[in-house]
Design a protein around this nucleic acid. Structure first.
Lengths: 232, 232
DNA sequence: GCGTTCATTTATGCGTACATTAATGCATTG
DNA sequence: CAATGCATTAATGTACGCATAAATGAACGC
């Protein structure tokens, strides 16, 4: 889950830390993504405040509240915020929702992508292929997110984009912790399959074939799910 | 927008106000739904604090942050939170996303609804028909939301439900303010069309015909959109 | 020896005071 | 008279201290 940007919600961009709340938010996201916590762990305000060298808990408290509001964290009143735990039922919900939302985003992307968007998407794809061949798993995970995130972005639909990013983050928890659990053997196999599927999706978008792009994306997400839960 | 419950996100239930933050959140939602604000209006922390008879801005500040995080409000740093403004482009995004998400929810509902769920859905529908005939627009708006919200609920998918509620709230802004703008003439016509469509959707769900339920829902949302923006 | 209760600990929840910043209007100057 | 800059104001943003609730563990009674 390292280098996952999904929690930031919205187009990938340099975030200017205008105030401590945003700084705290981004930093907490970074802490999660850098795997300092695992599902079920509590994120203590005091500890985070200290870790970030902040003078008061207030911005941290606020930032945690926002992460809960967005559904990235769960919360027990007067107890604290924690990384939501992963269950098979939740995984099915997550991947089912992701199938549908991302396939809609892909279809919409095929309709609304500019020529520049297509060029950039193909560049991302090329980088993905190279990273995949190099065997750099962390790097691949990052570029994989970039690919999916960019498709949501070129759908030009703020809402599809928002939901895509959210559900991607949630699904990525499963991807990451499964990979982690089974070392990298499965990850490597996955990384050899995904680029080919991404390539087909990119082609469909480039041809402005919305229907095909949507179907391919749905297939791709489903295969990711099956790769994680079925073939072990 | 009166009597819209979408901002509360999640299944409709009695909310126990465990603490002032939740109380503030719920109260601010209520204020919005009771039409105290219109798109573009700023929600001032001090004013809200006073209105709710709270001693400090803290819970209000926190609650507003959550509403921004969830995408129900926009925010300008150091300026304040405000009701997002309505634009034709945004409306297209909103209704396009809603078409897809709600149709998925309806399809999933057809697959996962229990017999009790179907019974309750039919009761809601019956109440809707009666309310529609009575001409009570506010009441109809509430029952309309209940109908859509309940379908999302019986999809049994937490994520589809979450996104459905969010996008419904956003689309309802357009519905409500358009109705408001053109008095009730258009609303009345709408209220005579919707129940018939809801009935067909309910039938499809009752027959567990996921494909049909999804298609009908998509059609229904699109017609709502067209009713608001095309036929004026 | 086990269960219940109470004290302690530890964390969030809240209130007050103050800092900071963005907008506004007025005054001053060219 | 117009434009620029400074002061004022009004709002959010932050810090800190105390209130409060929940979990934990120890002590007491049975």
């Amino acid at each position: 889950m390292n280098a996952c940007q999904a929690l930031t919600m919205g187009p990938i961009k340099m975030r200017k830390k205008e105030n401590l709340e945003e700084f705290a938010y981004d930093s907490i996201v970074a802490l999660i993504l850098e795997n300092h916590y695992k599902p079920g762990d509590f994120l203590l305000e005091a500890e985070i405040t200290e870790r970030l060298n902040l003078k008061s808990r207030t911005p941290v408290h606020h930032a945690l509240g926002q992460l809960v509001a967005k559904g990235f964290l769960d919360k027990k009143s007067k107890k604290g915020c924690f990384i939501p735990s992963l269950t098979p039922e939740d995984a099915e919900h997550v991947f089912f929702a992701r199938e549908n939302i991302e396939s809609q985003a892909a279809a919409s992307a095929a309709l609304h992508a500019s020529n520049e968007d297509i060029d950039e998407l193909q560049m991302i794809l090329q980088e993905e292929v190279e990273t995949g061949e190099s065997g750099d798993i962390i790097g691949y995970s990052a570029i994989n997110e970039t690919f999916h995130s960019f498709i949501a972005q070129i759908s030009k639909n703020k809402y599809l984009q928002q939901y895509s990013q959210h559900i991607f983050w949630r699904s990525n928890c499963y991807v990451f912790f499964r990979y982690y659990q089974f070392k990298v053997s499965m990850a490597e196999r996955e990384f050899k399959i995904s680029p080919a599927q991404h390539m087909k999706i990119t082609e469909a978008i480039a041809k402005r074939d919305a229907d095909k792009a949507g179907k391919l994306m749905k297939q791709h997400v489903r295969r990711t799910f099956e790769g994680i839960f079925k073939n072990r």
